[in-house]
Computed example of a mutant assay.
Amino acid sequence: MNRAGKRLITLAGALALCLVSVPAVQAAPSGTYWTPERMRAAAPLDIRTADASALRVTIPTGEPASVAPMAFPHGGGPWTGGGAVVTTAGRVFFTYQGRNASCSGNAVTSGNKSTVITAGHCVKLDGAYHTNVAFVPAYNNGNAPYGTWNARRTLATPQWDATEDINYDIGAIVVGQLNGQSLTDVVGSQGIAFNQPRAVDAYAFGYPAAAPYDGTRLIYCGGRTFNAFLSNGLGMTCDMTGGASGGPWFRSFSEATGTGTLISVNSYKINIIPTWMFGPYFGTDAQNLHNQAQAA
């Protein structure tokens, strides 16, 4: 695990706020930078890990009793259902502190048809925005069947931009056109919603690349969301690992069509409960980020 993954999340850090956002504008990587070999070799960025003992809180075992589970909860496995999510979800590649790394992301409905939503730490970490950022929808073991879409702008919520506050671990990537076409005209998009109910049946997707996964396939989890313990976000039973960060959480997801409404992203785990995943609540700050990205 890298230094950032080991860093403890403190209550003070979790509650820190800022009022302005400073988006990053970056030069797009060359079209040949992300070769199949570099994509396969990219290290999964660790899902941020919270040390619950440092916060002196009691973590219950099992899913909270107040939350009714889905009829068929799924802790993590390959997605074989097909549908739109196969092309809207993908891997996010970037260079972080001199190494090539990866996360996950998803194309969403947007005015510019070019917006990908991911985790904040997948665009900025340890005070600096990543470079060579690109989105590869429908990634398949080094193959990019719908092309490699280079970022022309990366953004984060103002709270993540200022202090990397885990409550607002949300990022956006605005990609350039490829062969004269816009991203969602090629791969489709998923809807996105804000200020939604906190306890819903949801599906999470991503490309975890740390053991026992290898980053070659789209993985999913399904379950009832519950209130997170160390942040104001949401939790779900899910064993995805590093590289899944930024992958989408959908409510009202249809297994038949592979479509849903994005309400969160994979963000962090608690070190003593590896079977739970947590994501930020999409409130007004997430909505403002989406609006800012789709206008770029």
Rank of each mutant, 00 (worst) to 15 (best):
T87W: 04
G260A: 06
S267M: 02
N271R: 11
F250C: 02
A24K: 13
A41K: 11
G5F: 04
T49Q: 12
Y268F: 11
G90K: 02
G191Q: 12
W34N: 07
P145F: 02
S264N: 02
Q196D: 08
C238L: 03
I273K: 13
V92T: 10
P197T: 05
N106L: 07
G147W: 02
T131E: 11
K6A: 09
S231A: 11
T87Q: 08
S267Q: 06
G235P: 06
N291P: 01
P274M: 01
N271I: 08
A293G: 12
Q181P: 00
F226H: 00
Y268K: 00
G180N: 08
R217Y: 05
A50G: 05
E255T: 14
Y129C: 03
A28K: 09
T154A: 13
C238N: 04
A296G: 14
G142T: 06
R152L: 08
S53Y: 13
G90I: 00
L15H: 11
N271V: 10
W160H: 03
A256S: 10
A293F: 08
G260F: 02
E255Q: 07
R3N: 11
P145G: 00
G77T: 10
G171W: 07
V116I: 15
N150A: 13
H130K: 07
V25K: 15
G76V: 09
A128R: 13
M70W: 01
A16G: 09
A89L: 03
K269N: 05
L17M: 12
I9L: 12
A151C: 07
